[in-house]
Simulated assay, not measured.
Amino acid sequence: MAPDLPARLFDPDARARLQAVFEVDFDRPAVADLHQEDPQVLAGVDVLITGWGAGTIDDALLAAMPRLHAVHHAGGSVRDLVGEGCWRRAVRVTSSSDANAVPVAEYAVAMVLLSAKQAFRSQVVYRRVRAFVDREREFPSAGNHGAVVGLVGASRIGRNVIRLLRPYDLKVLVFDPFLSAAEAERLGVRSVGLDELLSRSSVVSLHAPLLESTRGMLGRRELALMQAGATLVNTARGALVDHDALVDELVSGRLWAVLDTTDPFEPLPASSPLYDLTNVVLTPHMAGAVGNELTRLGDHAVDSAISMFRGDSPVAGEVSEESAATMA
């Protein structure tokens, strides 16, 4: 992980809890690339705690860490972290995805509610006219009472969003091919096809993982199904959407968007027209854990490490090879 990340992940209490069970040297600087670590240090590693930017634990690293039996990731997806050799050697893996899902869902819900209220559009209008605004005439469809919100993906984050939206008077539609009608009813949402969701929703929020089957799942045809003036909120991966098609829709002014930019462009090219569009809210990958939220990830990783050491079952956040392949 990045050398300065441990100080932001682990507060004094987390450090003390970890050191009560394991031999941990917090004074030793973290390394961004484990391949550059002292081989003698690697040879004595039983448990590895990783963070963003850790690189892949490949066969070379596994050979250098013959005692390694557990990896606890203080971050989200482990798809690019855990090499196939880890699974072959039965190294146990946990992820703090549940902890990272909390701020992402909070961000998404805030943006959904503000979008349905047309807060972003009203700001643009007010700044332009600099005078009295007739709200009822200018924003006749604004508000969250009975508004239709579409969620693409009943993922870990998607389900958090569903839970957080429950107190509001919204009609929530969900598209997820793996969501059964019975489960949708239990969640208090309606399961529909993607086309119906896009055409009916005033706000569409993306929560699907980026897989080969979901890459570009919103193309020109799908974006054209959205209502004029509807808002697309993307706190998932940018590559879920055909970028050029989205830019065209946004430049035309037909759609609005809240984009927490991730791949394929992180950051967006400096020449991107999205920076200058008043119908686009851009943030630099802020939805996930940042600032004081990082300690939630550290606490989760420490809890998982201690739980696994004690022999608890199940261990919070434990990831299988199969589930790792579908992580966002």
Rank of each mutant, 00 (worst) to 15 (best):
L187E: 08
L187H: 08
L187M: 07
G188P: 08
V189R: 02
V189C: 04
V189K: 05
V189N: 01
V189M: 05
R190W: 01
R190V: 11
S191A: 12
V192I: 06
V192N: 00
G193K: 04
G193D: 04
G193Y: 05
L194S: 00
L194V: 01
L194D: 01
D195H: 10
E196G: 08
E196C: 06
E196D: 10
E196A: 11
L197V: 02
L197Y: 02
L197M: 03
L197E: 02
L197R: 01
L198K: 02
L198H: 03
L198D: 02
S199R: 09
R200P: 07
R200K: 11
R200C: 13
R200L: 11
R200H: 10
S201H: 05
S201W: 09
S202Q: 10
S202P: 04
S202M: 06
S202I: 07
S202E: 07
S202A: 12
S202T: 09
S202N: 09
V203D: 09
V203H: 13
V204F: 04
V204N: 05
V204M: 01
S205K: 00
S205L: 01
S205N: 02
L206P: 00
L206Y: 03
L206F: 04
L206M: 07
H207M: 07
H207E: 02
H207I: 06
A208W: 02
A208M: 08
P209I: 09
P209F: 10
L210I: 10
L210W: 08
L210E: 12
L210S: 10
L210A: 13
L210Y: 12
L211A: 04
L211D: 06
E212H: 08
S213G: 09
T214K: 08
T214F: 13
R215E: 14
R215I: 13
R215K: 15
R215Q: 14
R215F: 12
G216F: 14
G216M: 14
M217W: 12
M217A: 09
M217I: 09
L218W: 00
L218Q: 00
L218R: 00
L218C: 01
L218P: 01
G219T: 15
G219L: 13
G219V: 14
R220Q: 15
R220E: 15
R220M: 15
R221D: 14
R221V: 13
R221N: 10
R221I: 11
E222C: 02
L223N: 01
L223A: 06
L223E: 03
A224P: 08
A224V: 10
A224C: 10
